Computed example of a mutant assay.
Amino acid sequence: MPDGNDIQVRMCEVKLGSGNDVLRAILGSCVGIGLLWRKRGLYAMAHCLLPEPPQAPAGEGAKYVTDAVPTLFSMMGLERARQDEVEAVIAGGACMVQHATPPRHGLIGEQNARMAQQLLAQTRIKLVHVDVGGESGRQLVIDCAQHQFVVKTIGRST
């Protein structure tokens, strides 16, 4: 991969990529949100731990889905008028822990995925791929040079 970086997007991070960069995130119950602005050759990914903060908005970053979406827009310089030029992919949100009975507050992976989809539905961005839920982890990869993404399922070892 000449002239490019392999950019690992770790938990609670937001990263940008362009040129020959490759953005990657390994996701379990966390949700990954990838934005592809092919027209500008600009790509971004957030790796979100929780759907929303327990109180007022926390601010910038990707710990919470509710903060990650505006942070992605800000980092990309994406104005509402240009949102229709951008595509989104959401992956992750799996149930990685076996529960005897479902938690009272619900499954965090499901909440993460639902919040990401709700927030993107309020924009002009086209959601082109959703791969969430189940009991398997995923890897979300955005290859900036190829202008493509891929979601790979990571099987659970028995």
Rank of each mutant, 00 (worst) to 15 (best):
S74V: 00
G134C: 04
C30G: 05
A44V: 10
Q55H: 01
V130N: 05
E60I: 00
L72A: 11
P102N: 12
I26K: 07
L16F: 01
P54E: 03
E87C: 13
G32M: 06
V97Q: 13
L49Y: 11
K63A: 06
V130G: 02
I7V: 15
G106P: 07
G137I: 07
Q146T: 08
A56C: 07
G133V: 06
L27P: 02
V150K: 13
L16R: 02
H99R: 14
V89K: 05
I26M: 09
I125Y: 01
E110V: 05
G41I: 12
S74F: 03
A56F: 13
I125A: 01
K39Q: 13
M1A: 12
G137K: 10
G32I: 04
P54S: 06
Q148G: 00
R40E: 15
M96E: 13
P51D: 03
L16M: 08
A46C: 10
A46F: 09
D84R: 15
G137D: 04
A56L: 09
A116D: 09
G4M: 07
S136Q: 15
Q139T: 13
E85D: 14
D6A: 04
Q8K: 15
G133R: 06
I26S: 10
Y64H: 15
R10M: 14
V132Q: 06
R156N: 07
D67I: 06
E13Y: 00
D143H: 08
G106D: 11
L23I: 04
L42A: 15
G92R: 02
Q83V: 13
A91P: 13
S136G: 02
N20K: 07
S157A: 14
S18V: 02
Q139K: 13
V31Q: 01
T101H: 14
L27F: 01
R114E: 14
G4V: 09
D67P: 06
L27D: 01
A62N: 05
L72Y: 10
E85G: 02
C48S: 14
A62V: 07
G19N: 09
L23C: 04
G28C: 00
P57K: 11
F73G: 02
A116E: 08
L107W: 14
I142Q: 03
G109D: 06
G28H: 01
G41H: 12
Q98F: 11
I26C: 09
W37S: 06
V31F: 01
V86M: 07
T153H: 12
T158R: 14
V97K: 12
V86R: 07
Q83T: 12
I154Q: 09
A116I: 02
G34R: 07
Y64C: 09
G134S: 05
P57D: 08
L120W: 09
L16S: 01
I33P: 05
A88I: 00
M1K: 04
G137P: 07
K126A: 11
R24C: 05
V132N: 04
S29D: 15
A25P: 03
G4E: 10
A62L: 03
G133D: 08
R80D: 10
H147P: 05
P70N: 07
V141M: 02
L27I: 00
I142A: 06
